[in-house]
Structure formats: C-alpha cells, structure tokens
Design a protein around this nucleic acid. Structure first.
Lengths: 222, 222
DNA sequence: ATGCTTATAATTGTATGCAATACTGCTTTT
DNA sequence: AAAAGCAGTATTGCATACAATTATAAGCAT
C-alpha cells in the first residue's frame, strides 16, 4: 500500500497545485503553463491537469483566459478586502451557532490548539504559529455545524492566505494577535456568541490594518 | 456575429448543464453519464464535458464519485437548510452595505423589477414571478458592491433553486411573499440597513417554513 | 430460490495527436 | 525610426484511442 492518498490524478493534481498556491510556491500573477506543470508532477498528462485547473479556477485560486492559459489569481487591494469581509462575515455568522453547539470536548481541543500556538509564538516558529492560527479559526467555524458554510469559508481563506501571511511577519502584531486569540477563546469557552462575534471581527480588522500596508508594498513592487 | 456567446466548448457545456440543473431538467439524484450528455450537445466530446463536470461539482451542483460518475447533487433537508442559512447570512451581510451604497438609479431599477414582479403575480405567471423574485435578491446583493460575496451568493442560490421553487407553488404564500417584498423594497428605499436585514431574514424564514413541508414530500416520494 | 464466481459489457480515467489560436522576432513599408 | 505585416514557434482547445475500473449477467454451487 504505497502513498497514493488521492485516487485519481485529477485529485492529486488539484490538491498538489492548491498547496503550491496557498504555500506561495506559485505567486499571484504567475503563469501556470500546462506542459510545464505536467512535467513537474510524475507521469501526469495534460488532461487531468486541465481538469484540476478548472477546479482551482472555480475556487478562485486561478484565473483562466480562454486560449491564453492560467495564472495564479492576483487580487487587488479592494478584492482582498472584499474576500476578507466575506470570510469575516462567515465567521461571525458561524460564531453564534458555534457557541450554541460547541461541546466541552471541542472546547478542550481548541484550547489545546491555542496552547500549541502559544508555544509556537514563544519559540518563534512563525510558520507553525500562522498555520495553527488559521486552524483555530477553521475549527470554530466547523464547530458551528454548517458544512456548506465551512466549505466556503475554507475556500475563501485559501484565496487570501498569501496576502494575510505578509501581515504576520511583524512581531508586534504577532504578539497582539495572540492576546486577541486568548479573548476569542474565552468568549467561546463562555459560549458568548455576541462577544465571540465581536472579538473575531475586531481581530480581523486589527490584523488587516497591519497587513494592508505590507500588501500595498508588495503589490506596488510589481 | 453568430450565436456562439460562449467561447470554448467547456464554457458552453458548463452554462448549458448549469441551466439544465437549475431549471430542473436534470433532477437531484439523477445520473449524468458523460457519453449520454455529450451526444445531446452538438459536436461535443467528452473532454470539454468532463471539465464542465468538474466545474459544476466544485460549485456544488454535481456530486462526483471517482470511477462511478456524476449525479445531480441531492441535498438532504438539513443540507438545504444549511445552504439557505448561508445565503440568508450573505444577504444580511450585503444588506447593510447595500443601504449605504445604493444609488437612486439603482433603487429605481429595483423598483421597476418590483413592479414587474407585481404584474407577474396578478397575471398569474408563476415562472416569471419566481425569476424576478430571485433577480431582486440578486440585485440587492450586487448593489452592496462586494463582487466576491455576490458570486458566492449566486452560486449557493443556484444550488437550492430546485428546492425553493417547490415552495412558491402555493398561492397563499405567493401573495404574502409579495407583501414582504414591498416592505423589503421600502427598507432599501429608506436605506435602513438594520431593517432591511431583518426583513430579508424574516422573508426567507417564512418562505422556508412553507417550502419545507413540500420538499419533505418530494424527498420522501423517491 | 439464494448467494457466490466469473465472464462480459459499459463507463470512467488518462494519454496522445492534431487543429486552432496566440505569441515572437524579423522584415517591410511609410 | 515607428508601425504594420508576416513567417515560425509555442501553447491552448479538442477529439479520439486505449487502459483501468465498475456495473451487469450468466452459470454454478449450496
């Protein structure tokens, strides 16, 4: 039983490419030539790859121009803000339900994540910190029990991941975000939906303020 | 200048199939065999069709089982409720922004739609009524100015369209929905975001109550 | 009859080849 | 010198052929 966790090659190509985009291996605006990518993945022909491109384009990670190929979607500032507003809206919506439905076990699980995030912070493992951070938000949304909402939320988070990551490089923001997360967790623990909602919104707003300038730098550098 | 409004065959197949699903030509649970569909569309081979299937599956309209083909996604009651909650959440989110940004011209345009809907109601043109109804909700969301939000909203609306349509067959609900829409429009006209939000939520809640029983019938009839 | 095995057919998954379109660099024209 | 025209090249779009997998049916055993 070798490691073919993905049944079809289309699925393999999709998850692999998605990973490459969200991890920043492929940068916004970069061209994604079929042949070129196909050669990078072992024994993959253009047919399943093309199917993967259509999927990722539908998710918003790629932009297709007919007869001109695919590029990693490059979001303008306004578009990043739109997607961010959308994800925050979804999280807020989920927050109320999460507080109503969350079990003690789930609170404990998220608490454990929080602890791991704290550790990553103190040991200066930026990447881990960032990943766990995202995971906590994701788990809060999942706990709300609306699978469709969670799916969309995850998809939209993926779209802005490269942009958000930029903002977390500043250590001072990093520290404050951790403090906010403690409050977020407490609101969840108290099952205080309205408060959780407010904390999440504020958390994202604060984060975006810091990120914004950095993103603007990066965009203008093109 | 001929009628090929869609550049590639993949696009053609996608819009055509999407239409067939949302219009109810293909019913939830129904099998979508590649060869069979390919023969229905003129000169279309399996390759672009398969790409269309992946797109529609990503949108949630189709469900793919590896090596076993595609079926029109069949939503359980709980899933319909989840998607509905999601769309209502998105509309509510949009409502505030819509009231802040809506122009007089746009209000007039939506007012005209409202009028056309009224006429369709009095002339008992159910299909038109339903379509215009959806269009009004769509326009309100679009007016909010968040393209990403509008895109997701439209996608999710499409998913539950066949289920919602069932509920609007009852004339008494039909009449009440029209009255609610008048209030919705007034809230927009007054640019009262909080009220619009509340009206939209209530409108959908009321509609769902009626639809629910009918959907349950239809599902159990399988 | 029912359940299991196996052979056959049907359907999906993938690779490849060809046609259509867009890009590149050069020549030509003004 | 700048713009337009024009091969030649590269890349995408599509159809087809083949491989892999699953569904179907017939035969056999219990």
């Amino acid at each position: 039983m070798s490691g073919d966790k993905h049944g079809t090659r289309t699925q393999l190509a999709t998850t692999r490419l998605r990973q490459m985009i969200t991890a920043g291996d492929l940068r916004p605006g970069q061209r994604v030539a079929e042949r070129e990518i196909a050669e990078q993945l072992p024994g993959l022909s253009r047919t399943p790859l093309r199917e993967a491109l259509k999927i990722l384009a539908t998710e918003g990670l790629l932009t297709l121009s007919p007869n001109r190929g695919a590029t990693v979607t490059m979001l303008s500032m306004a578009e990043v803000e739109d997607v961010l507003e959308l994800t925050v809206g979804l999280e807020s919506l989920a927050a109320e339900h999460a507080c109503m439905r969350v079990s003690d076990a789930e609170i404990a699980e998220i608490g454990a994540l929080q602890q791991k995030m704290r550790e990553a912070f103190h040991e200066n493992r930026l990447m881990d910190y960032f990943e766990i951070n995202q995971l906590i938000h994701q788990r809060i949304v999942e706990v709300a029990g609306n699978r469709e909402l969670a799916r969309i939320h995850a998809t939209q988070c993926a779209r802005i991941k490269p942009y958000r990551y930029a903002g977390n490089r500043r250590h001072e923001r990093w520290e404050r975000a951790l403090a906010e997360h403690e409050q977020i967790f407490m609101a969840l623990q108290d099952r205080n939906g309205a408060l959780l909602r407010e904390m999440l919104s504020a958390h994202h707003r604060n984060g975006w303020k810091v990120t914004k300038s950095l993103v603007e730098q990066e965009l203008s550098r093109t």
